[in-house]
Design a protein around this nucleic acid. Structure first.
Lengths: 341, 341
DNA sequence: ATGAAAGCGCTAACAT
DNA sequence: ATGTTAGCGCTTTCAT
């Protein structure tokens, strides 16, 4: 089965290949009858348009690069799900790259995407990235770039994130309003602004309700289920007085819950717990886990939409970039129902 | 910033562009000194190789299409994670498509992938697919095709699946060996061989242990958490005698657990439960859910590896295709610890 | 409404 | 070790 080109169709119909090309692209100047004839023989011969050739000539690939830390993290796979669905509807394909949270792999990925002449890049960058020059290069080449979830605000690129500050504030306020007073926050050692924002929200909520900040109640480490367990162990062994825990994300919260249960500390009567991210397991565990939803589906859609808008504009980085901040959603479940009166 | 081509580098160095091309591709016949000079000026001028042009000329895109139902299902995103990682290490990029379990979108996806001249396709096809002609076309065009999880065995294409029969057998045998005797199986109405295999495993395990099959204990529907709840309601309202439930996947099992708990039926003392898929929440719920692990990471790796082997062969569909069946893993947790003595 | 011709940026066969 | 040359299969401008 040798490959069929527009030339083969042209020969079959005794017209030139440029007429065929126009017919296949629904060019207005081509008569209805030739269009039909062309499409029929294309079908008959099993013609498949060579997008590589047309991309080379036209300078547009209709492919956009999506670069994320890892599809093994449900947050990212969920957003990518949304991005692919929307872009697909608009005739774009997704070239996928995972950085595995390593900026070196990310740099390599960006190079490959650029070599592939993607029409633009959508990304949430690696946790260990320290300088933004590679993204500046993309911008200076006038290639559309859109961030989601993790954004570099010093750059002139649009972004879709959730309001992590607000999320942190909401979680903390909810605990306070439920009657908790000595609220622990577990955060990250690694320097990522989204975690700092959540911490800020925590601090401001305490302030707003006139609760003094106690440094003993702010624990730092590397997020994981086991870290959550360790935090509870440390708090109890050091005899620190607390009645609620707000963790930077759900897996850590899960560790907290498991350890509290194993030490026979009742949730939510003795200690309230709230996480962040609304992982699938939160509604299924006992007690079910209160959390902050990050609206992953909405984020995927908004990101794709924002990117498409940018593409249409033509001259990308001229105006101030649009920065969409999605509202986090408070999901109240059993784990934060309030202390025993 | 206009684009830099090998011609620009050639002019800069007063050599021909074909020497430049060879230097950049580390052609053995090029002297070390020119290679260095070329690479230095390439860097200096900000050259970025146009993969589209080289693909057009060479007939190889170094891109493979990955077509899955949805990244919102953790099983698939996990396997795609593995596939991307491995292919990436071997210099391939992934063009991603989601069928959303619709064979129509899948057909469109395949067409786009073929138009994009991918070097091959890796897929787990849509649940509603009824005929295999589109895959036969791919094969007849001699384009490498590899299935994972859901395979069409009548086709001459390699596949990586887990042994669903064995998984069904293991789950059932485990319940029997734990002391359960009246074992329900919840399965799918829709016609997908993986579910039928699990059912077969269930039936054969019963047979092997001389337990008569009771049709009342085999329930069919569309998998979901709520369906699991409904099944328990139906079983109890109809007064059917049962002491264990094996569900076709974990979300349904979760529904079963929630409904049993809400009816004050104790797990595992009164009713044992085992699911299938080893979703993330299984270890976190109470009681923790016994299940069958599908080895998603291994599946991703094996699929990528099998595909790469195929690529190397050159003439694809000549020999009998390799069909890798991975062993499922029995994960015993609290929900199937055995009935009260 | 259609044809002719140029060329996108590479690779690769064939020179020298 | 390097140069010459001919395309890959389209899109697009200019003619007719």
């Amino acid at each position: 089965m040798k490959k069929v080109t527009i030339l083969d169709i042209a020969k079959e119909l005794n017209i030139t290949f440029s007429t065929v090309a126009r017919a296949l692209n629904d060019h207005p100047a081509i008569s209805k009858s030739t269009k039909e004839a062309v499409k029929k023989t294309a079908e008959k011969l099993g013609y498949s348009k060579n997008k590589i050739a047309s991309s080379l000539r036209s300078g547009k690939s209709n492919i956009i690069g999506v670069l994320v830390p890892s599809l093994d993290v449900s947050f990212f796979s969920s957003v990518v799900h949304g991005i692919e669905s929307i872009m697909n509807q608009h005739g774009y394909s997704i070239l996928l790259y995972q950085s595995q949270e390593s900026y070196k792999k990310e740099d390599k990925g960006i190079e490959t995407l650029l070599n592939s002449r993607v029409d633009g890049i959508i990304t949430s960058f690696a946790i260990d990235r320290e300088d933004s020059t590679i993204f500046e290069e993309i911008i200076s080449k006038n290639i559309p770039l859109t961030f989601f979830d993790r954004a570099l605000y010093q750059l002139n690129a649009p972004s879709v994130t959730i309001d992590d500050y607000k999320g942190g504030y909401m979680a903390t306020e909810h605990l306070i309003q439920s009657g908790y007073k000595k609220i622990v926050h577990i955060t990250e050692t690694r320097d990522l602004s989204i975690f700092k924002e959540r911490l800020k929200g925590y601090l401001d909520a305490l302030k707003a309700y006139n609760i003094p900040v106690n440094e003993d109640l702010i624990l730092k480490g590397n997020l994981s289920l086991n870290f959550g367990k360790d935090c509870v162990k440390e708090l109890t062994s050091r005899g620190i007085d607390f009645d609620a825990i707000f963790t930077l994300e759900d897996f850590t919260a899960m560790g907290v819950i498991q350890q509290l249960k194993s030490q026979q500390i009742r949730i939510p009567e003795e200690v309230g717990v709230i996480g962040f991210a609304n992982e699938a397991f939160g509604s299924l565990v006992t007690p079910s886990l209160s959390t902050i939803d990050q609206q992953t589906h909405l984020m995927g859609q908004e990101t794709a939409q924002l990117f498409l808008t940018m593409l249409k504009e033509g001259s990308f980085y001229k105006m101030a970039p649009q920065r969409i901040k999605l509202d986090p959603l408070l999901i109240v479940r059993e784990s934060s129902k309030g202390p025993q009166l």
